[in-house]
């Protein structure tokens, strides 16, 4: 049993904006087309710098590695070169493959035995899907614990080339996605005529939501991917959201919007287009607003209350937070989350 702590409720100076570690999960890195064969690039995500590279040749594999060579600490992204499938450190030309195995020490008569036993450079597991590069992050470097789902809209030619959008928000990824189950704010912040009736199912690393009896179906898949399908009289538009923590307090929001290739000029095509506009928040003649115009003012300025004062009519906020805790291994008993 817990009681309301009035002192805690009123004393907000000790509250943190973002008490969260970087969560475990699959995260978007970049679009595949943005990484050329043989390219080496430094990228900042998940609260640290990484070196992104692609092997030579048409089907060169992408790798995402910790920047510092296990040998003598040179930065692989400053002077490092791709050789075949490997990244080669500029300092002594040690080579590492995308899985972090040391593949060559050009001057050693005997390669250190550990090199044959295990990867010695920390790399993140990377897969390419939907024309995107995805990485698996785990704070204790454990192997992927689930697979990315199938998204037919991004896998078939029957759908239009997605429109994409990118936004930067000054809060943690958990806070951004919490709005997905905060159904009450849709009336007051977004101006929906009423609080939409909604159901939520938390299942392993996934959440399934249904708002307005099938009008919006949401599928959150870990902390870094959510798919929302808007169904207006059978015309469906899809929003795929793939946020990635930049730092612990900054999140890059990325989205792809698409719909079935309805024949041009048909009513269905217009409805689908309108749905997409509505999602982003630029639809004409709309009374309610998409996330772009209203959510940022809240996200960018709020503090996180680990013990919020909730009322009837609020969505399943606490269930969501309990669900999200699975992505903070090692923080099971952290009272600030």
């Amino acid at each position: 049993m817990s009681v309301i702590d009035l002192k805690l409720l009123q004393e907000t100076k000790t509250l943190e904006r973002c008490p969260f570690p970087i969560p475990a999960g699959w995260f978007f890195v970049d679009y595949s087309k943005n990484l050329a064969p043989g390219e080496v690039r430094n990228v900042f995500l998940l609260d640290q710098e990484w070196v992104l590279f692609r092997g030579e040749g048409e089907d060169g594999k992408a790798g995402l590695t910790d920047p510092f060579c296990p040998h003598l600490g040179a930065h692989l992204g400053h002077g490092g070169k791709v050789v075949g499938d490997n990244i080669r450190c500029t300092f002594h030309h040690w080579q590492f493959n995308p899985e972090g195995w040391c593949k060559d020490v050009p001057y050693a008569k005997i390669m250190p035995p550990v090199c044959k036993k295990q990867p010695i450079l920390r790399t993140l597991p990377v897969i390419e899907k939907w024309g995107m590069i995805w990485c698996w992050y785990h704070p204790q470097a454990e192997a992927p614990q689930w697979e990315l789902p199938s998204i037919p809209e991004l896998e078939s030619d029957d759908y239009i080339e997605p429109r994409t959008g990118h936004w930067e928000v000054n809060t943690a990824v958990q806070e951004v996605a919490e709005n997905g189950v905060d159904f009450a704010h849709l009336k007051f912040l977004h101006g929906e005529p009423e609080i939409p009736p909604a159901t939520t199912e938390f299942k392993g690393h996934e959440i399934f939501t249904d708002m307005k009896n099938g009008y919006i179906k949401g599928h959150q898949c870990g902390p870094g991917l959510a798919i929302f399908r808007f169904d207006h009289e059978g015309v469906v538009a899809t929003m795929v959201s793939y946020s990635v923590p930049y730092t612990r307090e900054q999140t890059k929001m990325n989205m792809s919007f698409t719909h079935f290739k309805y024949p041009e000029g048909t009513k269905e095509a217009m409805v689908a287009q309108h749905l997409v506009n509505h999602m982003v928040g630029e639809a004409d003649g709309e009374e309610s607003a998409g996330f772009e115009s209203v959510d940022f003012i809240v996200w960018n300025n709020k503090k996180y209350r680990p013990n919020p004062l909730l009322c009837d009519g609020d969505g399943p906020i606490l269930q969501y937070r309990k669900w999200f805790k699975q992505f903070y291994p090692g923080n099971e008993d952290n009272p600030n989350l």
Binding site: I110, P112, P113, K116, K117
Partner: peptide, 13 residues
């Protein structure tokens, strides 16, 4: 074990 692995690698030389 680590020592054994290094010694095995030395064996060639």
């Amino acid at each position: 074990d680590e020592e054994d692995m290094m010694l095995e690698a030395l064996e060639e030389y």
